[in-house]
Amino acid sequence: MKPFQYMRPTDTPAAIRVKGKEAGAYFLAGGTNLVDLMKMGVVAPEKLVDINRLPLRGIEVVGGGLRIGALATNSEVADHPYVLEHYPLLSMAINAGASPQLRNMATTGGNLLQRTRCSYFFDPTMPCNKRVPGSGCGAIDGINRMHAIFGASEKCIAVNPSDMSVALRALDAVVRVSGPAGERSIAMEDFHRLPGEQPELDNTLQKGELITAVELPAPVFTKNVHYLKIRDRTSYAFALVSVAAALDLDGSRGIRGVRLAMGGVAHKPWRLGAAEEFLKGKTVTEDNFRQAAQIAMQGAKGYSYNQFKLRMAPNAILQALKTAAAIV
């Protein structure tokens, strides 16, 4: 690991100030992704600004919703009684990711900024437009079993690896950020981006901005929810495909509201808007779910090694909806 300058500010403005807009300066939170990337030589910060002592760890009920401090660890969020009761989907998604030890370290803000697990990105000897813009994409003609089927570009077919973000996307979370130009809010929808011509940009944060919190709107989906993650082993593995499904059902199994998002299929958590539209106002039947799953697949495109995702994804949507609706 390349030597770097280490700083540990104790208040947020100081942290933002010392990091400044330096390209070589990074915020360090849980470190579970950044320290790994540094060890692999994927990133080599000149300066690490340790933000762990900033007062951004609280989880509070604010208004009708929930405000999760950026430094709240994944475990703290997943195990929080209010989250378990009112946002169980988030709890399930977080617990489907990584391992208990990593979840104890990883933070909410850090999880949102998790880099892709694409092997070409992680191996500095391979071409990767995300790591070195213009160097080419190793995956597009390479081993792309883990890669995107939605929203990819010629430059990059990597996927976002986060499970938490899939739930946050489904729940319409808002990311609060603070930066040299002040504070602002970014809807989850707009936070992560598609690779397009600039795959080096994972998200829409501006230079020097720090995530301070994630806000969830008032809880709606408290009961009929499921996070299904299909992976190559039962636990401690990244998703082949994952689905966050949330249903708001009336007394006669009518679908008042529905949220669907997928992980492991795109450069950002992939919201299934058309499928949601289709299901809204319909009743819970396997056939409706099956149709919704087919609608969700419109525009999907497989590559040489991930064609299976075109079959697996609709199956996963169906299964997640069935489980959420408790149809066996």
Binding site: R117, M126, G142, I143, D232, R233, T234, S235
Partner: peptide, 25 residues
């Protein structure tokens, strides 16, 4: 262990992407 024959390198040559069974398996 998966090779990319274009480069002659493993693409999953680490403990996260090469999957040995975990307790839950």
């Amino acid at each position: 262990a998966i090779f990319d024959d274009k480069y002659g390198r493993y693409v999953n040559g680490n403990f996260a992407d090469y999957h040995v069974p975990v307790n839950a398996d």
